[in-house]
Nucleic acid binder design. Structure first.
Lengths: 292, 292
DNA sequence: GTTCTGTCTTTTATCTACAATAGACAGATG
DNA sequence: CATCTGTCTATTGTAGATAAAAGACAGAAC
């Protein structure tokens, strides 16, 4: 195989969901727009729909013939891009399987294990190297630096610098900036989750990312915003493997977030700075606790 | 060709220079150590030396037969790794040739122009993307974001945060830290260059990198240290294409460096902070002046 | 005349293959 | 017995090939 057709399969699945709403489909360019793919892919989707007798298609007329059934969809395992699969496999490997710092990483072995070509794995490692967890020895292997205490401290040091700076920028945003609107929405979701914390505490992870990314974005600095990727991936996988006391931890973090949000909304730099520091401090402690 | 033998060629050239000093060569492992290559490469070098009648080689005895001549060396053009060649070509292209922001970057075209395979170019672009000058549209082209005023401002904002933090860390380094020794050496070179500024002003660029990297390293933070790569590459190429008033600019910067160095040596955090700010401010202005 | 479709070309994503390089091991040498 | 050399194997760096996806263009349809 040269290229996986995951774009096609994923867009196909998303397209079937559209059928629930309308009986006639829009034009090819419009569909492409809606699904975020090119016309070439749209036509491939339509062709397949026709083959499955899901639609009747003749030039501009496209009529839905029947509701899609579960068996019409591609299995979700096939809709993930190769890069996503590699990332997941790799993270599982280095987080779950005893990954001692200093361990060597072998491209070929990794590729075989994941079932991908070496090129893809290699490109993944290059992209991943900016997270500071691995390092290349030229003409030789990669070295795993490990998710250690030092790593967490270095990460949070930069994170704190960046977020404090971003928060300071945030409070001085003009009133009409859409960030205020988004902040309100985020606040509302916080209250919803807190009201039903026992059932919904696990939604915190996603919300956390949404709030902090919003703050970082107000820095208008590509390096600060890009760095948030590092934070996001670390916390994302961190939440996945450290579930001890998740309910209480998340409840407390939600409260801190609400303080932080209120401080931002006050437009008072000193208040925002304080609230930001408080929250970052406890976020750091939480992260450090999970590291042996 | 599968892999360029630039490691061999470069090590071969460096090996010939060793001949000037000794008439008998050390063992293979020792040579490998000295040249920073594996034994396999050492043996390839020795084999070639033997072919050229440069040495007599029988097991452990390796005697130099004659001085190497210029024609024995590989041309320097062949000793650069492919990655270096790609970087240079690419930088020339986007800095010299009218590189408007928003321009599309074509992997295949770039590869043909540089005379490399697409894989290498692709990997270069992935690595390079962390410098914030290009961005990928998945399944489609790269977009050049351009060396703009905003870029320079965003870069310097982060640089200033990082360097101030590093300088603060520097003054609290223990007395026996080797950084103090290196700082002294750097100071001495500054004075040497200033004493003969008319002839040696162009050596400033390299010295600048040496000093700032030393400061950044004292942060002991991989993210701060890694970010210095971004600064270094920008200033490196910046110096190459903005030579107007280079003599005066560099002379002034050298003086500022000396103040900065003295402030660091004073171990006084407030003094260091001040001197650092002053120098960073003028470095930023210099950079901005060169952007239209 | 604008937007759509049919067709074709270009470019990316990925795999496979192979030379360069690193590295391992056993026997040789001092 | 420690270090070196001869030999062999494993892994990386790079090119080339190919299917998927993007996108360009002309003529058709509204």
């Amino acid at each position: 195989m040269a290229k996986q057709n995951t774009v096609f399969k994923d867009a196909f699945n998303r397209c079937l969901k559209l059928f629930a709403e309308t009986s006639t489909l829009p034009s090819e360019p419009e569909l492409g727009q809606a699904l975020g793919v090119s016309r070439t892919t749209v036509r491939a989707i339509l062709t397949r729909c026709e083959e499955l007798s899901l639609i009747a298609w003749d030039k501009r007329s496209k009529t839905v013939l029947r509701r899609p059934e579960p068996s019409d969809y591609f299995p979700t395992a096939e809709t993930d891009s190769l890069a996503e699969r590699i990332e997941r496999s790799f993270m599982r490997r280095i987080l779950a399987g005893g990954a001692e710092p200093g361990m060597q990483i072998n491209e070929l072995e990794l590729a075989r294990e994941i079932g991908a070509g070496t090129t893809s794995v290699r490109e993944f490692l290059i992209r991943f190297s900016r997270f500071g967890l691995i390092e290349k020895r030229p003409n030789s292997h990669w070295v795993l630096k490990g998710f250690t205490r030092e790593f967490a401290l270095e990460l949070t040091e930069v994170r704190e610098m960046f977020e404090l700076r971003s928060a300071a920028r945030f409070v001085s945003l003009p009133d009409h900036d859409p960030a205020w609107e988004e902040l309100k929405k985020i606040e509302a979701v916080h209250r919803e989750i807190l009201a039903d914390i026992d059932n919904r505490y696990s939604e915190f992870s996603e919300l956390d990312e949404r709030l902090h990314l919003l703050v970082h974005k107000s820095s208008s600095n590509r390096f600060i915003i890009d760095f948030y990727d590092v934070i996001a991936i670390v916390f994302h996988y961190h939440y996945q493997w450290n579930k001890a006391n998740a309910r209480e931890r998340n409840a407390r973090a939600l409260e801190e977030h609400l303080d932080y949000i209120a401080a931002l909304q006050s437009r008072d730099p000193a208040l925002a700075d304080q609230a930001c520091r408080r929250h970052l401090k406890s976020a750091r402690e939480t992260l450090l606790q999970s590291i042996p």
